[in-house]
Design a protein around this nucleic acid. Structure first.
Lengths: 112, 112
DNA sequence: AATCGTTATGTTTTTACAAATATAACGATT
DNA sequence: AATCGTTATATTTGTAAAAACATAACGATT
């Protein structure tokens, strides 16, 4: 039995993607760096692509996920809201539970 | 709460994709029509793409998933082996269980 | 008002992938 | 041996997504 089972989950809001693996990684990097441009660089993502992703998340979410500031002493920055941090937590918990569930399902299959 | 949770699962064999949603749909269509070309047409898939998918499945699976015949009275055809039919059953069962599990997980979240 | 590093956005170029096209191989049937 | 509808495979073309490039807007600081 060299077969293994993998999965990707995502959360939708009104039929549109709210959060998937890539967006979660981006939000975590924003939280880490306090800057979208730095987060994009760390993930080897173009700034524009990263901005579009964050914009899409904020437009689909029920509450803002980031706080964006332009200009100022360090040019500005981007932080996560508490709501955003909570979304990450929920997503990752469900994702890990899903992995465990699938591994268990595979174990139940005797032969193939 | 208009959030919903979706998923895609796939089975890997030695680190390579064996079966995912698209391949399962294709195998089911082959089973239905007894022909790869007809199955491809039904799924609005180019014959070549369909053939490559089936070829990849057969190369990754531990046992052949299809029986292919070339030439003959009706030009040939493609059937599923019992092993192939069994793989479909297993995949779909686990997939449905996964959906139910994720819906349940989402219900557990009180507010967001 | 000049500078700085950031967010925000438009425009162009590249690239990866899908689709389309073409053709060979096959074997039962006639 | 000619035909037929299929599987098998190579080559070309098209297209949509990604990347690259460019520039505007912003506001605290100097």
């Amino acid at each position: 039995m060299n077969y293994s089972i993998k999965s990707r989950i995502w959360i939708e809001s009104n039929g549109k993607v709210l959060l998937g693996h890539g967006r979660i990684e981006l939000l975590k990097a924003i939280d880490q760096y306090g800057s979208l441009s730095k987060a994009a660089k760390a993930l080897q993502l173009s700034y524009k692509k990263a901005w579009q992703l964050v914009d899409a998340v904020n437009k689909s979410a029920k509450q803002p996920v980031t706080i964006n500031s332009i200009g100022g002493k360090n040019g500005g920055g981007m932080q996560l809201t508490d709501y955003g941090k909570n979304l990450i937590k929920i997503f990752e918990t469900i994702n890990e539970n899903c992995w465990a569930f699938l591994d268990e399902q595979l174990k139940k299959i005797k032969t193939f």
